[in-house]
Design a protein around this nucleic acid. Structure first.
Lengths: 199, 199
DNA sequence: AGCATTAAATTGACAGCGTCAACATTGTGC
DNA sequence: GCACAATGTTGACGCTGTCAATTTAATGCT
């Protein structure tokens, strides 16, 4: 009745534990030894699957970016008008950040991310491609961002920066002076709607 | 000729060393022991002036937010038209982030910040007040954000989120697909100008 | 079937970190 | 001149990431 020496799928178990930790304790609470403890493995077990902490963080970020891209694509699919689709993507962006704040912050903590890892690089291209491509569609422009016109690039950078900055400031409680003190989170989504639909 | 037991102004020396480290090695490279080493003090010396790492980071962030507010106010003072002033503030926002990337990221790393420290709290109010106040001026509205109209709040949140998101994404090399590969930093300021002046 | 090789996991060690307690030294106020 | 507070130092503790050596299990080859 003793636990087997080999876990079976330790890699997936470590990723699941890491996600739980990061959404409960924040990015700073995520440690290699902590995740190993949570799955009942030895402190150096993660090394076989992720090399080091950067590896674990990067692979978890890849999972996050894929879910992030899914969320934006699902939101976009519910609208036909290009502008409506873009707004829906923006709302999905912020809702994702609010639903999984730790994971979202980890995904944008560049110092512990190895963007050359294939899984992470691909997932990032998916997520950001969804956003910039949807902007190009509102301009009847080439969806490849690198080839788009100057106005489209500016439009994409503006939409992306706005929604990302809003999410970041919101998670860090920086927007409180602009929000309803009683229900800041609920008011935030209303404020976002005003930002998106206003001229 | 031996060093005196008391430094004279160890607190200021520690803050200066901390700033140099954070702009050279990033937020992750900033440690209490490292700062103490750089000024030739013992590893526990910072405790007398900052209690713990959160204290040091928070006091350094306060310095940063005051300089940040100065930069935005100086930029605003060079323009009479309210819209021009707001754009100038936005440019100063991003230029500050590019000039002192480590300090900027530290200022927005909420997990290691004690926002109830008087120095930090006051400096944050100053910085964000100049931004939101300048938005209200373009609407002939009450500069107190809490009392402003719904449209003004949305406008402030939009301007702030946009410029902050742009700075954050830029520092994390996330906007590269939208930028000139040869001179991304220079192109970034041109792109920001398009974002600000476009419709 | 049995053996060699590889993969997966463990143990133990090391240095660096933040933090705390105990102690030493210096400056200040009375 | 003396008590006292402020400032620095030393030493210890547990935590962390990482590496090397080792053990155990699974896999492939003949």
């Amino acid at each position: 009745m003793t636990r087997p020496y080999h876990h079976g799928d330790l890699r997936a178990a470590l990723l699941a534990a890491a996600e739980e930790i990061v959404n409960r304790d924040g990015v700073a609470g995520l440690t290699l030894r902590g995740v190993a403890r949570d799955v009942g493995a030895s402190h150096a077990a993660p090394k076989n699957h992720f090399d080091d902490l950067t590896g674990l963080v990067s692979e978890l970020a890849a999972v996050g970016f894929n879910r992030f891209a899914d969320a934006m694509q699902n939101a976009a699919a519910r609208h036909a008008d290009p502008q409506d689709r873009l707004n829906a993507i923006g709302r999905a962006y912020v809702e994702f950040a609010l639903a999984e704040p730790g994971l979202f912050q980890l995904m944008f903590r560049g110092e512990r991310l190895d963007k050359t890892r294939p899984a992470l690089h691909g997932a990032m291209l998916r997520a950001f491609g969804t956003l910039t491509g949807s902007v190009a569609a509102t301009h009847d422009d080439d969806p490849d961002a690198a080839r788009s016109t100057r106005a489209t690039r500016a439009h994409a950078a503006r939409a992306w920066s706005m929604v990302h900055g809003f999410a970041v400031l919101l998670l860090d409680d920086r927007l409180n002076p602009l929000l309803d003190a009683d229900a800041p989170r609920a008011d935030a989504l209303a404020l976002l709607d005003d930002m998106l639909t206003m001229g």
